[in-house]
Design a protein around this nucleic acid. Structure first.
Length: 739
DNA sequence: TACTGGACTTAGAACTTCCCTC
DNA sequence: GAGGGAAGTTCTAAGTCCAGTA
């Protein structure tokens, strides 16, 4: 079909394109088979949504304490009973060790099956953040130049802002407005203050900020022993909460600390950013543990909101947060059996997709021309999810940042450039921009044009007949457990496998690591995993480049020295000496001058530092002449180098031999090679975040296979945390494993 | 059957520790 | 051994998806 045919086709009504609509009378943008709106958090009449509760679970309702004072909750008096105590009374000892360390759940084929996620669960509850400590009386908020005497509750909130004064958040007007509203409310509720505070602009938080900076600086400058003492104390306090007993085995708990109060740091343009995240009290917390497990004591004067014994879930504690009325959970750590099992299941589901993917692709290609609009949308969405790794894209409320995924793409997010180029430009999860100009299947292009057809306009949904739920229902028809997100896992791991297949088993370990990272990067780019370029990035790239230049210069110098010792070497190994003329005189001069400048700077710095030290030790200070002497020496070296550049004859150090110089050159060459790899990696990775795909999308058994097949220590590919998380993969995959 | 609460995974930012250079 | 940047870890926001309910 020619391009003009396509344009003509697009102008025809839907049916003449062979496309039927289930609701044929109304234009597309006006009919909604399942009308989609941006969800709002209230009901239609503006009342809050009705809350539901599970009825089938065993519950022990604890006494509700009204109006808990802000300062009373801390763990000092809590948790007198630690895991060691509880496990003696509550859980039968398994026949082998209690330590999860030598238990290999992945070798136990029945483990993790059935609706019950655990049999016994014993834990010590959660740690609460320390109570608020009022600021010293001289640290105040100023309003219109006046010092303000704030009640502690309001001072705490003002302090949250003061501590963030120099961040981007604090400069965001929405953040400021939300903070200020909540601050005023807390101020009113806590009894007001000596000044009438009306305008945010008149608030001066600088004294507070300066105080927090001072405290931070003091903390930084604490002695090593002092820092260690504090850490040891903290570790001892946290120890009982770090682990729990799951099915009689000791396992690590992940986030056992209740989130402290603060200002909500929403990502992107979040309408609620800056709002006060309230302090969580024991009364807000629901614990989940075995029915026969001892209930950990709540902090003194408090009681738990509720205690459940729900084996169908894996959380140990939860509470409701006040920003978006959703739940926060305390769960097991990433290296726990429960997390490992669901991780392995996730990758196994993705692997099963291998057996279905061809049929699915053939089907959606056919379905792209389906007579029903909904089917065309399903097919087109599946294509986008499969080919460009888009997320499903659920509905979002007006009280959230405006971000989208596939099913929630709107008119303005997709630009069509005939014959088949599509520009995607939208904010995805975490308000990370997705921008791609891509070639698509002709029929996909045609469909997108239909989905954008009048009367649709900016603001309208592109996929108005489907939602992640309908799409997933369709996918389940192909394979149990298949949902939109499985495609991301599948395509990420498949890409990694394919990239690894291209890597030759040769070169040094660092070369192999670099190739592994390059493969990892391909996956990260596919999944659009980005990171903000660090402040010092450009500078550090330049420094590495200079370092390489300097090393190359040194190498050339040494080769010239060899020729001075034995000129016949050049005839013996002409190739080896080829590079001695690689750098022009200007290049060499530039390197020399940079090196000299650096040396001068360092001398100056050292002189200042030494004097500061002497001053502190009450010793006689070094004079200006001392510094000048050093600078003069450097100046002499400079002259020597300059002469050397002119004559091309570096001075040969005493005791040098051809063999010694050759060995030094070899070492230097290795350093240059390694530094160049390092530089390349750094540049390629500046805007791409490799960690997310490594942690969530790439089947860890691929990395283990790579490590074993290419003899790269796993430590070079997985950090300690990842090795713990993926222990199941490390122990179960070999060099022949395939995704 | 549609809706949404609830439970879970995925994500980048922020913070801490480690390691290299001087 | 101090300073600074990179690597690693923690924190918590922001997604996905399913099951229970009206």
């Amino acid at each position: 079909m020619s391009d003009s045919d396509e344009v003509a086709l697009a102008k025809l009504p839907d049916q003449s394109n062979g496309l039927k609509d289930e609701n044929e009378e109304a234009p597309l943008a006006l009919i909604k088979a399942s009308p989609k709106k941006r969800k709002s958090n209230g009901s239609a009449n503006g009342e809050p949504k009705k809350k539901r509760k599970k009825t089938t679970k065993t519950k022990v309702k604890a006494e509700k304490v009204e109006d808990v004072p802000m300062t009373e909750v801390a763990n000092g008096s809590q948790g007198s009973q630690d895991v060691k105590d509880v496990k003696d009374t509550a859980t039968p000892k398994p026949e082998d060790s209690e330590d999860g360390d030598d238990y290999k759940w992945w070798e136990d084929d029945k483990f993790g099956e059935g609706p019950e996620r655990w049999q016994t669960l014993v834990h010590n509850g959660v740690i609460f953040p320390p109570p608020y400590e009022p600021l010293p009386s001289y640290v105040k908020l100023y309003y219109d130049q006046e010092p303000v005497d704030l009640p502690p509750a309001a001072e705490e909130v003002a302090g949250f802002f003061g501590a963030m004064l120099e961040t981007d958040h604090a400069k965001n007007p929405v953040f400021q407005k939300n903070f200020f509203e909540d601050f005023l409310q807390v101020l009113e509720e806590s009894g007001g203050c000596n000044v009438e505070i009306l305008e945010f602009e008149k608030c001066d938080f600088s004294k507070m900020y300066a105080y927090f900076e001072k405290v931070r600086e003091e903390k930084k400058n604490m002695s090593k022993q002092e820092k260690k003492r504090i850490k040891d104390e903290r570790d001892a306090l946290e120890e009982p909460y770090r682990t729990c007993l799951l099915n009689g085995r000791k396992e690590n708990v992940g986030n056992f600390k209740v989130e402290p109060p603060g200002l909500f740091r929403g990502r992107g343009a979040h309408p609620k950013t800056g709002k006060l995240k309230k302090r969580v009290y024991p009364e807000d917390i629901t614990l989940n543990l075995a029915a026969d497990a001892p209930i950990p004591p709540a902090p003194e004067g408090h009681s738990w909101g509720e205690v459940r014994h729900d084996k169908s879930v894996v959380w140990l504690a939860m509470w409701k947060e006040n920003i978006s009325d959703s739940f926060k959970y305390v769960k097991l750590a990433a290296n726990s059996s429960i997390k490992g099992i669901s991780d392995m299941k996730k990758f196994e589901t993705a692997r099963r997709l291998k057996d279905h993917i061809e049929r699915i692709r053939a089907d959606y290609r056919k379905m792209l021309k389906d007579q029903f609009m909904q089917n065309r949308q399903i097919a087109t969405a599946t294509y986008l999810i499969d080919v460009f790794a888009l997320r499903a894209g659920g509905e979002k409320g007006d009280d959230e940042a405006d971000t989208v995924g596939c099913c929630s793409l709107r008119y303005e997010h997709v630009t069509l450039k005939p014959p088949s180029t599509v520009i995607f430009d939208f904010l995805g999860k975490d308000s990370i921009r997705f921008y791609q100009e891509v070639e698509v299947d002709r029929q996909v292009f045609k469909n997108l044009r239909i989905f954008k057809k009048e009367p649709k306009q900016p603001g309208d949904d592109l996929f108005d007949r489907i939602s992640p739920s309908t799409l997933n229902k369709h996918l389940q028809g192909y394979m149990k457990g298949l949902t939109a997100k499985v495609f991301r896992t599948y395509n990420a791991s498949k890409t990694m496998q394919d990239q690894m297949d291209l890597i030759e088993n040769e070169g040094t370990v660092s070369e192999k690591v670099m190739r592994y990272n390059a493969a990892n990067r391909t996956v990260a780019i596919l999944c659009n995993h980005q990171r903000t370029v660090t402040k010092g990035h450009q500078g550090s790239v330049e420094r590495i480049q200079e370092k390489i230049k300097e090393m190359e210069w040194q190498k050339i110098r040494m080769k010239r020295m060899i020729l001075q010792l034995d000129p016949s070497e050049k005839k013996k190994k002409p190739k080896y000496f080829e590079e001695i003329d690689d750098l022009t005189k200007e290049d060499l001069m530039m390197i020399v001058h940079r090196l000299i400048e650096k040396q001068k700077e360092q001398a100056q710095k050292k002189w200042t530092r030494d004097n500061e030290k002497r001053k502190a030790e009450k010793q006689e200070l070094l004079g200006e002449d001392d510094l000048q002497e050093k600078l003069d020496k450097i100046e002499e070296t400079k002259k020597e180098y300059e002469t050397e550049v002119e004559t091309e004859n570096p001075e040969v150090p005493k005791g040098s031999t051809v063999a010694k110089l050759q060995s030094q050159i070899e070492k230097l060459e290795n350093r240059i090679l390694n530094t160049s790899f390092q530089l390349k990696d750094k540049e390629d990775n500046s805007e791409v975040s490799l960690g997310t795909s490594k942690m969530n999308y790439i089947d860890p058994r691929l990395t283990v296979m790579f490590s074993k097949k290419f003899n790269v220590p796993i430590e070079k590919l997985f950090t300690k945390t990842l090795r713990d998380k993926f222990n199941w993969a490390i122990e179960s995959a070999d060099e022949n494993w395939r995704f």
